[in-house]
Nucleic acid binder design. Structure first.
Lengths: 217, 217
DNA sequence: TATAACTAACTCACTGGTTCGTACATTTGG
DNA sequence: CCAAATGTACGAACCAGTGAGTTAGTTATA
């Protein structure tokens, strides 16, 4: 995983396992996200790095394990950012709207990640299931939403049967769909969902949608 | 496409172009939806039909053209059903809720179609763009929503900046997400979104979400 | 009505290029 | 000098696509 303990990495090492691994992962993420698992070529990934195919097998063992490593890296990065969101000091309505909008921004900025998720779903989550790293990665967001919902019910701002997972799903669905399905949607309805000129309105709509729903009737 | 004009197809024909074509398409849809475009094997598709690989090339020319044919068939079927939805006699609020719920049911019942769409998006809509058949397939739904929104604004039931495409996107996002992302979502949050016991609640939530949003503040 | 001529539908066997993975030799850093 | 890291070259399986020939079914003709 990392350098053997006790080594201080010099700036210009010719041989640097960590750097090589990192570069492979980075390139692999790009290629897998672009071509899918079956469509990606190990030879191409190798050609796009400063190293060789041999090193991919040296470090990752197989195409599949490389793909799993890419998934783990991408998910971990994304969730790490998510964890830094601080909306605890806001009133429930403002808090959930802010969370929704930050989630929107986040997905808008991590399109490659969304593609990886879509690819993994096409494979029925076969690979993600093999990784223990990713098992309990979702709970922080859920805890946050649970607290917001609870506060909103107490204050009377919210009136809903939805639980934290439901709310997270509503938000994710909106944020993921406009990126993940942009091409077929664009082909059928002639609107580039992810074009910059629609961003602000969509962001507003999402916040409004969630808040309206939670307020109830 | 069809039998030469003037022939009446007998019940037990050994050679039947239409039947062969249809069987190839059916099997191909299953395999493409299961394995993706690159992951699907022409040989496997052939083995799952009563015909041979040679016939696939005889009728469809290439793997890609077969895939496009599958897409066209799937989209056309789905939109045909969509067109039969009749909510014109309902009041705006009831109409949009019914449309949302019927869309929900529809997506719930056509999971293979959703997978094909996801696959096509991974390929950035390259293939769907090549098909003129699918170019103006979206307009009927849009017309319907436009009319409902218009009526709702007139009656004062709706107060929203969203247009028909926005509303259709909101509905689709919810309906597609819970099917398309069920595996990664399940792995991360431990809830089988598409399990029958959650269906009714989710359906209700969608309708409520759309109606609440359109009502405004 | 019998059959010859014709064409669409179909089978079989094959190929050339690709692609994952590896054996083995070599180099580098500590 | 040793182990980790790297380069080269290759093999075996796979896989999209095809060349060439065959059979079923239809239509024209006697």
């Amino acid at each position: 995983m990392t350098s053997p303990s006790g080594t201080r990495p010099s700036a210009a090492r010719q041989r640097d396992a960590d750097r090589t691994r990192a570069e492979i992962l980075e390139v692999a993420q790009r290629v897998f996200a672009r071509d899918g698992y079956a469509g990606a070529r190990v030879d191409e990934i190798a050609d796009l790095t400063r190293t060789t195919k041999r090193m991919i097998y040296y470090y990752f063992g197989s195409k599949e394990q490389l793909y799993i490593a890419v998934l783990e890296k991408a998910y971990t990065e994304v969730r790490t950012v998510e964890r830094t969101v601080d909306v605890a000091h806001l009133a429930p309505t403002a808090a959930i709207r802010t969370l929704a909008e930050l989630t929107f921004d986040h997905h808008d900025a991590h399109r490659e990640f969304i593609k990886l998720v879509a690819i993994e779903n096409i494979h029925r989550g076969e690979h993600i299931r093999k990784s223990e790293v990713l098992a309990n990665l979702g709970t922080p967001v859920l805890d946050l939403i649970t607290r917001i919902l609870e506060a909103g019910r107490v204050s009377g701002e919210f009136d809903t049967e939805a639980d934290a997972i439901d709310v997270h799903m509503m938000i994710s669905a909106f944020c993921v769909f406009r990126v993940a399905n942009q091409h077929t949607f664009g082909a059928l309805f002639g609107r580039e969902m992810t074009a910059p000129q629609h961003r602000a309105k969509q962001r507003r709509m999402l916040g409004e949608m969630i808040v309206s729903y939670l307020r109830g009737s």
